[in-house]
Design a protein around this nucleic acid. Structure first.
Lengths: 225, 225
DNA sequence: GCGTAATTTAATCATTTGTATAATAACAAG
DNA sequence: CTTGTTATTATACAAATGATTAAATTACGC
């Protein structure tokens, strides 16, 4: 339901450039995000994306070249935003100068993803795309992941290492990898937490959940070697 | 010479029941496991599975009915084994009677999965199948997950709650959900840990990795509320 | 030995899928 | 007004896909 002024109203039968030229490219990307999130790359159907975006199927070849390029494009778009926020948050922390708590650093890393998830359907879809991409062993997927995550994750590891002098940087690296798994898995669908635990978790709000997660992960990161 | 029988003189199998029935059903299941792990459900091709198993494509319909049923079947097969080991491990712990350490409980839960992963190609494939299945929002996938994980996870939560009286059972449930995400994500491909951390982790053996993980998760579980 | 049921194959079917092509309309430039 | 460029559509296609069919062959109970 990402607004597409073009999507519902008009049904032009004849080909040709419409009067109100569009950023149909963005409309396509938005809907593609949803479909890829729901079905994964292999499961997504180009026809479905085109239909939901309310455009002709050929348009997606026209704008993106191929299904794979569309996927990469959509993923990078959000990925860059995410990485940007992470960098900004860490910079802000470092500017404070004081000694940082592990909790603050973890929160700075997690919060952008959290906010993105709840920023709208597109954000939630991106989280699901990430979870799926992390389960793909293919080379393409690997490159994309590295491209998106590498830089900011590395900075956080360095800062954490400085704040946890008793723990070797190797271990911190490893634990940050644990962390990525934990939050992605969970953010992927909060609702599923209930399933995993047979309905025990019901009335925990998203903010509360985030702080629970930060507490859990911070304790793990600090665990004595 | 349009006779189809001997066109290529190689091993052209005539139809019919083979002398020694070598349970092709299991052969198919084994190879299906691999293919589903590599490409996910949607990405897997029935033809590919049949080809790798060295059987005719129709045979998989004959034995399993459909692609989806084949997937479920394969998944359940391993899932039951896994759940069985978890139950056994926990029973053994409880029989000891003494006060249990959180580390022991976590290890009892994780070890079967670990062992399975390193028990052979089938075990490793199953781990990847799990990671993929957990990223699927479809209803089918959800039911299957519940069916496999529910019972044993629940028991572990109860035992943990008894051993961590300061932490409400709700919180333990939530943290166990975190735990599932953490270990699945990581077990999915140990090699990828290196990617996530830009090659920082190299010479950590699988046993060592397991104890690192147990330390991390136990600390997280024990974190004060 | 014989008939029947079980197992396996080749061949094919009906769709689905990603992509390509040609036509057409809006718009800009000259 | 003509011409060219760009955005969009309907249509089509060749390849791939999950499933089915009919026949072939053998194991096995009687």
């Amino acid at each position: 339901m990402t607004d597409s002024a073009v999507a519902d109203g008009r049904r032009r039968r004849k080909p040709g450039r419409p009067k109100d030229n569009g950023d149909l490219r963005d409309v396509i990307a938005d809907h593609a995000e949803q479909v890829f999130a729901e079905h994964g790359f292999a499961g997504a159907r180009v026809r479905d994306i085109a239909a939901r975006a309310g455009v002709n199927q050929a348009l997606i070849s026209y704008y993106f070249g191929s299904k794979r390029k569309l996927f990469d494009d959509v993923f990078r778009r959000r990925g860059r935003v995410l990485a940007g926020h992470r960098h900004v948050n860490l910079d802000a922390l470092l500017d404070r100068g004081e000694q940082l708590a592990v909790e603050d650093i973890i929160l700075a890393y997690l919060k952008p993803q959290w906010d993105m998830k709840y920023s709208g359907p597109g954000g939630a879809a991106f989280v699901r795309m990430q979870a799926r991409l992390h389960a793909e062993p293919e080379e393409d997927a690997l490159r994309l992941r590295r491209e998106v995550y590498d830089a900011s994750l590395h900075r956080y590891i360095t800062v954490l290492a400085k704040n946890l002098p008793d723990i070797p940087e190797d271990i911190i690296s490893m634990r940050m990898a644990f962390l990525v798994g934990t939050y992605l898995f969970m953010l992927n669908d909060l609702g599923r937490l209930q399933d995993l635990t047979s309905g025990h978790i019901t009335d925990v709000g998203k903010d509360q959940m985030l702080s629970h997660l930060v507490a859990f992960l911070s304790a793990g990161l600090r665990a004595p070697v």
